[in-house]
Amino acid sequence: MSQSLDRQKAKPHLAEEWVGKIYTFLCILFLITTIFSIVYFVASKGLSTFIVNHVNVIDLLTGLKWLPDGEPALFGALPFIFGSFSTSILAACLAAPLGFCAAVFMVEISPKFGRKYLQPVIELLAGIPSVVYGFVGLSVIVPFFRDVFPGQGIGIAAGALVLSIMILPTITTIATDALAALPKGLKEGSYALGSTRWQTIYRIVLPTTLPALMTGIVLGIARAFGEALAVQMVIGNAPHIPRSLFESASTLTSAITLSMGNTAMGSLANNALWSLALILMLMTFVFVFIVRFLEGRSKL
């Protein structure tokens, strides 16, 4: 008697559980399908340069000349790859020390002021559209560089500087979280041995949170690597490896955004751009794996 009653009662709950399960499953299925479709689409387009059009992979990765309309057409993407890496890494080099110091200030030196004013300001930086960054870069940084350094002002230096401001929030936020999550006991342990605040920050706080800080840098580089618009506005977009930081250059993203509209779908030139997109995507995967690896190490 009680047995059957239990079962009757259990039925609506069971149905509820199933609805929840199916609903979440469908959502995740949709997500996974989308991701795989994008990867498949980019890969199939990007690889057809090599498979259908028989362009040599090595030539594409190491070639110095990008002449899609030339005779013969040349697809050397090295200038773009070089431009992407140099701007992102330079941007990270500029932003990382700034971001760390801002985080140390917000968490260790002046938490009250930091939490109340600095954090919102830095989060605000993340919300500014990239076209605004590009525009400011074009009307402030480029003229400044033109006056101070030889050259036109455009180039890798201008691109890196704009990017460094754009990735500053990423690096600062992650560094702040990492510093705030540090067990209080570690800092107290250091203070109790008669360390100064600076010694504690330098010898205990920073080394202990290093993996998380590195994660922030890599995520910053990944963001800089994928940024197209702002960079395109200040870098000059000449498809060759520049001899100085103040000479026109290109990145993978700027090459794609500039030329995609001018090529016919399915043509060799179009496929070559997809190959650039494939390189971008694969690099992003590499960054994600690096972050995963670092996160694994930071769990002590």
Binding site: P183, G185, L186, E188, G189, S190, A192, L193, I204, P207, T208, L300
Partner: peptide
């Protein structure tokens, strides 16, 4: 010197 309830060795 001071010693706490939870051991807090540095990550070294």
């Amino acid at each position: 010197g001071m010693v706490w309830q939870r051991p807090n060795p540095f990550h070294k």
